[in-house]
Design a protein around this nucleic acid. Structure first.
Lengths: 117, 117
DNA sequence: CATGTCCCCATAGACGATCGACCGGAGCAA
DNA sequence: TTGCTCCGGTCGATCGTCTATGGGGACATG
């Protein structure tokens, strides 16, 4: 039986990781909700899923913390859209958050695969 | 300024990962709560923290799902202790969970570090 | 116009996992 | 006795996510 490696991972495991992904997505420049979600899903080769009900609370949360800032604009499809851009604090937060993510992964992997050290 | 890589990561990010760590810890054989927590912390070089208030609910949860089974015994310090062992279903769950963890890490890293592919 | 469809933002209620702070008991030593 | 350590357990609060639902504006169709 093939290991069925196709089905996507929703937020079940990426608790707290969505913020990180959003911040990273905004590095190249401002984007609105749909684009952010699409980019995360696409760049993860559809392994990651971003639900609307998680995305917008996350965006508001990040804005409240001063890591992103928003402004109204017009989307590529001529729709009113709220764009988000990374703030200076957000860039710093992204760096910190990324290094914590790396440390976490490393630590979990050490538990999962007992090294011979 | 040195990057202060000393402070531990508590459950802020390892939502849903604790189950995985516990299951893996039980592979060599049965263990009781204190030992499980100690092993996770030690094997992660004290990067991971396992709080009592998270550990026992997790153990009960895993037992309810049939992934671990428990029995009363006596600890190395001659204290009454509840030992947990991996069930067959738990071993299967560990394999599945581990592969999902790997897929998640891979996916997040793809978003964090846009590959050139 | 009327209708439908897509795009986009937003919120509400429920849920599940974790956290910090407790508590009780039993072994052991001073 | 007192006090410390080991061990299990629970409670309330908090936080992030999910499913479901809503609305409004742009655009195409007939």
């Amino acid at each position: 039986m093939p290991p069925r490696d196709g089905h996507p991972l929703s937020g079940e495991m990426l608790q707290g990781t969505l913020d990180l992904l959003i911040l990273q997505t905004l590095v190249p420049g401002p984007a609105h909700g749909h684009t952010i979600a699409y980019n995360i899903e696409h760049r993860s080769k559809d392994v990651l899923q971003v639900e609307h009900g998680s995305l917008y609370p996350a965006l508001h949360r990040l804005e409240n913390r001063g890591w992103i800032a928003s402004f109204w604009g017009t989307s590529e499809n001529n729709r009113k859209a709220r764009y988000y851009r990374l703030t200076t604090a957000g860039r710093q937060q992204l760096a910190d958050h990324t290094s914590r993510w790396d440390r976490l992964v490393e630590a979990v992997n050490r538990v999962l695969r007992p090294a011979e050290d």
